[in-house]
């Protein structure tokens, strides 16, 4: 055997365990979903049969899907910019030499370490009408009581706030790592030139953080469309589908209504959407991002 052939063989052998898991639990299910989406859901007396694009046509005509989709867009538009901005702000803040910065870093990162279920439960208490923390505060100022998670107008916003609170700390870690990779001597050079803190951030730190921002942005978009645990604990999609997001809707269709074929079609749509987003972000933004 030539060295080259042997290297190839060893390479594949080393890849095999991970590859097996990926194929079994990621690639194959994705492919299976794609195939299943062109069939009808099997019922006790009616086996699955090929229905072509019927499931996809149903999606286009499904008002709940469109509501879930627009909810999801609103949720993404609410969480992504705010959590990224907060993450940068917190990272810049705890990266500077402030007293107690280790404590601040830990404090900001804590929400990320907590399981979403626990986080959601904590916030459920905050939002509880009557005696929740929020009510106690607004009550102290004499404001009327409000059921934040129970009214369609505020439920999605309430869920969004929780997501921001959780995501910002996570993204902060990436920004903090990137900030620490910027040599401190650049800050000194800028301060010699008379640059204010803000100028230094705008002209030096922020541009140098662009690769991180791209990475975080893609993760944030994917997270926004992957969010489900929080919805399950806090609102179960209600009231009146006001907090139904796409993945939660898929879960409902698949495991509450047991319409697996339709759920498969919805899954394919979601996957295609995420793929497109990642492609656009890497394709377009990457060219404008400075890599050292």
């Amino acid at each position: 055997m030539t060295t080259r052939a042997r290297d190839t063989l060893i390479g594949w052998a080393l890849l095999a365990p991970a590859m097996t898991l990926l194929v079994a639990f990621t690639h194959w299910p994705a492919l299976a979903s794609l195939i299943e989406s062109f069939y009808s859901t099997a019922r006790p007396r009616r086996p699955a049969r090929f229905v072509g694009t019927a499931n996809y046509e149903q999606i286009l005509a499904d008002p709940v899907f469109w509501q879930a989709f627009s909810n999801n867009l609103l949720y993404a538009a609410g969480t992504i910019p705010v959590s990224i901005a907060l993450a940068i702000l917190m990272a810049v803040w705890v990266n500077d030499r402030i007293p107690g910065r280790t404590f601040a870093r830990v404090a900001y990162f804590t929400p990320t370490v907590l399981p979403m279920i626990a986080v959601a439960n904590i916030w459920l208490f905050f939002f509880t009408p009557g005696y929740g923390l929020l009510e106690q505060i607004t009550g102290a100022f004499g404001l009327p009581s409000h059921n934040w998670l129970g009214s369609p107008e505020t439920a999605l916003a309430a869920v969004t706030v929780v997501a921001i609170w959780k995501e910002a700390g996570f993204f902060m870690i990436f920004y903090l790592a990137a900030l620490q990779a910027i040599p401190p001597v650049l800050a000194e050079a800028a301060s010699l030139e008379g640059a204010s803190r803000w100028t230094f951030f705008r002209r030096v730190q922020f541009p140098l953080l662009m690769p991180t921002t791209l990475f975080v942005l893609i993760n944030a978009v994917i997270n926004a469309f992957r969010m489900i645990d929080q919805i399950i604990v806090m609102t179960r999609g209600g009231p009146d589908n006001a907090t139904t997001l796409v993945l939660f809707y898929i879960y409902q269709v698949g495991f509450s209504f047991w319409d697996t074929a339709y759920a498969a079609a919805l899954t394919v749509v979601l996957l295609a959407l995420l793929g497109l987003v990642a492609f656009v972000q890497y394709g377009i933004l990457e060219r404008r991002v400075h890599y050292r």
Partner: peptide, 28 residues
């Protein structure tokens, strides 16, 4: 530092990696 009327050259040069030569020179 900015109010002392000094310029400084660092051992590592401390150039801003994302700025062009002209922008680096003109930063201050």
């Amino acid at each position: 530092p900015a109010r002392r009327g000094i310029a400084m050259v660092f051992q590592s040069y401390a150039l801003f990696p994302h700025l062009s030569v002209a922008e680096n020179i003109l930063f201050g």
